[in-house]
């Protein structure tokens, strides 16, 4: 495709990037000057260009995670100038354009940092802890083919809309990266709330929140101290109200698990 010539000025920045060859290697910041930066270039495209330059110079390119490049897959995950996903509001790293920076800027690029997200290489971390949380209970158990007609379960529009707000989470982990305590509460709360707000999600509601919180704790995330750094960086602007909601759900479920009568057939003697 013929490219459209940009009428805008090119400029230069310095990328100061965290380089670490592997989980047990030691890491450090390395400076990479970048010239001919177009304001219409995305931040990841700049990394592409820098990487091609490194390759040609026989140096190892910077490993960074990315895929869809349109803010929906949740793969990209850089902390830029101390803020997960960089200076924008409600965007993922891949939606950050160079017009957010100016000539001469030094841009500091680090991986998401949390014990539960071990570093793989350079800017890439392992976020499989999120998958384990999901596997513990982030679902409604419905066998394929066992579903009733979709319109037999009306869902009040307000609930559906709120559930959708929670469901837009892209699983990027920025909430964890931004939290002073590396807590995963926003992510887990979004999941728990999405299903808990729908009538379909009610039968497993208590079990789900207990199991998911347990899996979250086991993964080694920190504890929420209600500072809301998470929702400030969330690319989908998911509100921390869902955290309050999950707290409530969790307590209810705990007490119900203790005091609600159980059928003797379910083996719940103890």
């Amino acid at each position: 495709m013929v490219s459209e010539r940009s009428s805008k000025e090119f400029f230069a920045v310095t990328l100061r990037v965290w380089r670490q060859a592997g989980p047990s290697a030691s890491g450090r910041f390395v400076d990479y000057p970048a010239t001919n930066v177009s304001p219409d270039m995305s931040f990841l495209e700049l990394l592409d260009v820098v990487n091609d330059g490194l390759t040609v110079k026989d140096e190892e390119p910077i490993a960074f995670a990315h895929d869809c490049r349109e803010g929906i897959c949740g793969t990209c995950s850089c902390t830029i100038n101390g803020k997960p996903h960089g200076p924008g509001h409600g965007i993922a790293t891949c939606q950050l354009y160079m017009r957010s920076f100016k000539d001469g800027d030094t841009i500091i690029v680090e991986p998401f940092r949390a014990r539960a997200f071990p570093l793989v290489k350079d800017l890439v971390t392992d976020r499989s802890a999120f998958d384990r949380i999901q596997q513990a209970g982030g679902f409604i158990s419905v066998r394929t083919g066992a579903a009733p007609d979709a319109n037999s379960i009306p869902v009040p529009k307000d609930d559906a809309d709120l559930a959708m707000d929670a469901a837009t989470c892209i699983g990027c982990g920025a909430c964890v990266a931004a939290c002073k305590n590396a807590s995963a509460m926003l992510f887990v709360a979004a999941k728990v709330s999405h299903l808990g707000l729908m009538p379909q999600g009610q039968p497993e509601r208590d079990k789900r929140v207990l199991a998911m919180v347990q899996a979250m704790d086991e993964a080694g995330f920190g504890n929420c101290t209600n500072q809301y750094e998470c929702s400030a960086v969330c690319p989908k602007l998911i509100t921390h109200d869902f955290i309050a909601r999950m707290n409530r759900d969790y307590v209810k479920a705990l007490f119900k698990a203790k005091f609600k009568p159980v059928s003797s057939a379910s083996g719940g003697a103890g």
């Binding site: 100061r16 965290w18 910041f29 902390t79 100038n81 101390g82 803020k83 500091i108 680090e110 940092r113 949390a114 014990r115 539960a116 570093l119 931004a178 002073k180 305590n181 590396a182 807590s183 080694g220 995330f221 920190g222 504890n223 101290t225 209600n226 500072q227 809301y228 750094e229 400030a232 960086v233």
Partner: peptide, 29 residues
């Protein structure tokens, strides 16, 4: 206990420390 756990949850800190909206009161509890 919570503070100790929270510190342990991020063994390697950031080169740039940045706060978005956490209030001072919340950070010095």
């Amino acid at each position: 206990k919570l503070t100790a756990e929270n510190r342990a949850a991020r063994p390697q800190g950031y080169g740039v420390e940045h706060t978005n909206r956490a209030t001072l009161a919340s950070r010095v509890m």
